[in-house]
Write a protein that binds this DNA or RNA. Structure first.
Lengths: 241, 241
DNA sequence: CTCGGTTTCGACGGAGTATTGAAACCCCGG
DNA sequence: CCGGGGTTTCAATACTCCGTCGAAACCGAG
């Protein structure tokens, strides 16, 4: 479904169990996303993942060099939703505080919708900066956008003066910490997301500004707030001849 | 399994490498704390831990039934510092907002001083509620104390009205999310802790109350609060044929 | 000296990751 | 029709880690 064109042909030894249905790489990643959410990343074995797509354990290594490469391929998506979110919000004409409120709420909700634990990602990705280079780049980009948003708000006098970078990291850490507790409770995720957004914005508003006004503006301006569920495959040059 | 007051006598087969120095159980836990911090919990193997205390890998199972029991023994400490902190703070005569500020700052600093990743704990402890029962009990107690503190502040009109339980969880999640990023940077931990405390308190203050006043009161009332944890050097030893 | 309790070890089975060489299939040129 | 070459899959294997088991090594009491 990722590539509407069908450029590549496939031949090769048939599978013992289960027939190939589509692009094996995409199927593996989809199954991995499912299993990571159900069992946790560390607890998901290559055997289990292979069985899920109808392959033998060792056959996975034809598509991915290692188990961690599967993780990395999935993890790379973790930042794209927040990045797209802050981009979309930045282009609106809302006040900075309302933008911040919408971002925090959307970020928490997006994190809670992830099939895996974002904190687990950070530990794994921190140990192997090389393999997760793309993740860290996008993470840095996200930090810059958010810091820039905070500076705008301070310049406009709507936010009280704080250290933009430190506050950025704090906000993102708060969002991630919340995901820890509400990832498995989609019902309460929105409620928690709003609570975090309220706390964050109220904590940053300059005197004389009302949280209620910001909330109203945030909710009113988010007529169109989508949470894309698509999980498109990404092409990571993997196979070896 | 050691009665803390009684130093039991010891006999038994001598170790091949390394001599017993003190209580093996305590030594294992100390080494585990060190290794968990250096390598991460999941990445610390029983062989490595055994080598650290001069034992063979299988000998660890004389003191602990499983690897997870080592984790659980260490993890039990994670909540006692915050619990003691909120108890001590509750008994002071400071305003609720100042108490909250002191707690959040102290909690973040205490979490950052832990030798392991608190979020990793939550994942592991969540999977095995049985084995980590004590941990979850103390965690629940901590939540009750903090919620009660929030209710006091709202009743006194110093904090704006919010859902106490939801806000409690949000605050604790924020603290834990921050630990993720500052655990390995003791230098910047205090700075980050204050930033989180500022953001939290400012986000909860009722209109007409000033964060600056609360900060002043918080700093003034905390003569000496934190007990830093020693973090001794490690020795890399990897020579094997 | 022998017996029993305590502590340690070595060997092993089970499970996970990753590598390797070969098998099974298709297509294409002769 | 036949055989080479590319593609995909598998089985076998090496290595690591966890946890168990039986026995070894030491000590003190009888």
């Amino acid at each position: 479904m990722s590539t509407p064109t069908e450029p590549r042909r496939r031949t090769g030894r048939p599978r013992r169990r289960g027939q190939p249905v589509g692009d094996p790489t995409a199927e593996i990643l989809a199954a991995a996303g499912r299993l990571f959410g159900e069992l946790g990343i560390e607890a998901t074995t290559m055997s289990r993942l292979a069985a899920e797509v109808g392959l033998g354990q060792s056959s996975l290594y034809y598509y991915f060099r290692s188990r961690e490469e599967v993780v990395a391929a999935l993890v790379a998506e973790a930042n794209v939703v927040p990045l797209a979110l802050i981009d979309r919000i930045s282009q609106t004409g809302a006040s900075t505080a309302a933008k911040l409120h919408r971002f925090v709420q959307g970020d928490v909700e997006a994190l809670c919708a992830l099939p895996f634990d974002i904190n687990e990602i950070h530990r794994i990705a921190g140990r192997e900066q090389e393999r997760f280079a793309r993740y860290w780049e996008e993470r840095a980009k996200l930090e810059r956008r958010l810091a820039s948003l905070l500076k705008d708000g301070m310049a406009a006098g709507q936010l009280r003066p704080v250290d933009a970078r430190l506050t950025t990291l704090t906000i993102l850490a708060n969002d991630e910490g919340t995901q820890n507790w509400y990832r498995l409770k989609p019902r309460r995720a929105r409620e928690a997301a709003i609570a975090v957004a309220d706390l964050t914005v109220a904590g940053l508003l300059a005197p004389g500004h009302s949280l209620e006004d910001v909330r109203d503006e945030s909710f009113r301006s988010s007529i169109e707030t989508v949470t894309p569920r698509s999980r498109s495959g990404n092409k990571e040059e993997t196979a070896r001849p």
